[in-house]
Design a protein around this nucleic acid. Structure first.
Lengths: 229, 229
DNA sequence: AACAGAACCTGACAAAAATCATATTTTTAG
DNA sequence: CTAAAAATATGATTTTTGTCAGGTTCTGTT
């Protein structure tokens, strides 16, 4: 089991790779592996986290409930990403909820191990810092997109993003299948508007659908739309 | 001069407070102080930064130009905040432009000093990390606001934010005076829409204006609007 | 003081997006 | 397999927001 974890961590989780052998051992010894079914909650907004969750398999949506009762999905976290890191570091309760989008396997690592390593191993801290700097840049970009692009542009962008980050199956459909509602919540629009635009894209031949599955049919057209042509 | 810097840094810049005496000395020796006039550019989006800027006085807007030619203001940085930190840490070019909103005094600290300290002083790295974790949380909140709140709500929120973070003068006007265009760019809307809503708020007696100055007249009403009542 | 230029303001209209209502299809549970 | 529930789809309508076009006021300069 330990060797398996060793392998898993080194390969997939970029911050943890800066840990020493002893520190990794500690992680291996204290971590617990959990299986989370599609739709199940990993943690809720406002929860006090006493550790982080390292995603081994599957995808989680990180979202925040707004006053009007809608969920805004801020990030989709996949294999290798760590959930709850920010909360543990800032010693704040979770700002976002984490829910499994499909069946997942996650490793729970107690915060003591993380915090300890942060205090003792500057390389690890620096590595985490670099990751967070990157996340922050992405968040800033999302803010600009949200306020300056139309819903159509954002939906087109979402499909391109999903294709790029989660791939396509052999039939050309996006590997990660989200419900229309989830897509709407990523993009920050009403579910009906989202569905309407999906229909429009399909009619124009830019995407293809089969049930809830969506495939990119004309990448260039989608790209042009995003760029504002 | 050195003693002055010592004082300044320790008091105002939370990450730098974790530096050792020697490290602070190094900062004092290598830093240069610059005066930036209102409207002047500190650095531009895409620029390679070879240091960070610590704000001693005045306010800077951090913004990003979108494809449609509009500037989205992502953050207003004031006394004690550090600009360019993220870029230096991630070794990326600047993602945002920094422009002075009023006359400023900033200290430029070469990146070598910062990066060196990051590698050698875990307390400092941890401190920077905590700050960035906090910034990331704020950025996530902004994303949710942008997508889930109406322009009216966002403008009301902006006034409350400006009042809370920059204060009011003795006549009850917001200390930080932004142009209508800047307010629109903070909120992510068209300048005309922004002006229209300001007129509406004034007509309702929720705010008062005098030239470009704006004052909060009915905090509760603004708050209620933000909360969705 | 007169002027230019910028910032501010307002109206009219067009476009985008949300909402409400109601089908239709797909999925799930018994 | 089938009924119920959930998700998807579409139409009609309203609300919100953006755009264009034309004003007015403010500000700094000569």
């Amino acid at each position: 089991m330990t060797s398996k974890c060793d392998q898993c961590i080194i390969r997939k989780f970029n911050s943890l790779r800066a840990m020493s052998k002893e520190e990794l051992k500690k992680v291996s010894d204290t971590k617990t592996t959990k299986f989370v079914k599609k739709g199940e909650i990993i943690f809720n907004e406002g929860a006090k986290l006493n550790g982080v969750y390292c995603v081994r398999n599957g995808v989680s949506k990180l979202s925040k409930l707004s006053a009007n009762g809608k969920d805004q999905i801020v990030k989709l976290a996949t294999k290798g990403e760590v959930l709850g890191q920010r909360s543990v570091i800032a010693e704040e309760s979770a700002n976002l909820s984490a829910v499994a989008v499909n069946d997942m396997e996650v490793c729970f690592i107690p915060k003591e191990v993380i915090v300890n390593t942060l205090h003792k191993n500057p390389d690890f801290t620096y590595e985490v810092l670099r990751h967070m700097a990157h996340d922050l840049r992405e968040a800033d970009d999302v803010v600009v997109n949200m306020s300056q692009k139309t819903v159509k542009q954002r939906i087109a962008e979402a499909f391109l993003y999903l294709g790029k980050n989660f791939g396509e199956d052999d039939e050309g459909f996006l590997t990660l299948t989200l419900s229309r509602e989830d897509i709407a919540n990523v993009v920050g629009t009403a579910t009906e508007s989202c569905i309407r635009i999906i229909s429009e894209f399909k009619k124009k031949g830019w995407i293809k659908t089969s049930g809830k599955r969506i495939g990119i049919a004309d990448k260039k057209k989608l790209n042009d739309l995003v760029e504002g042509f």
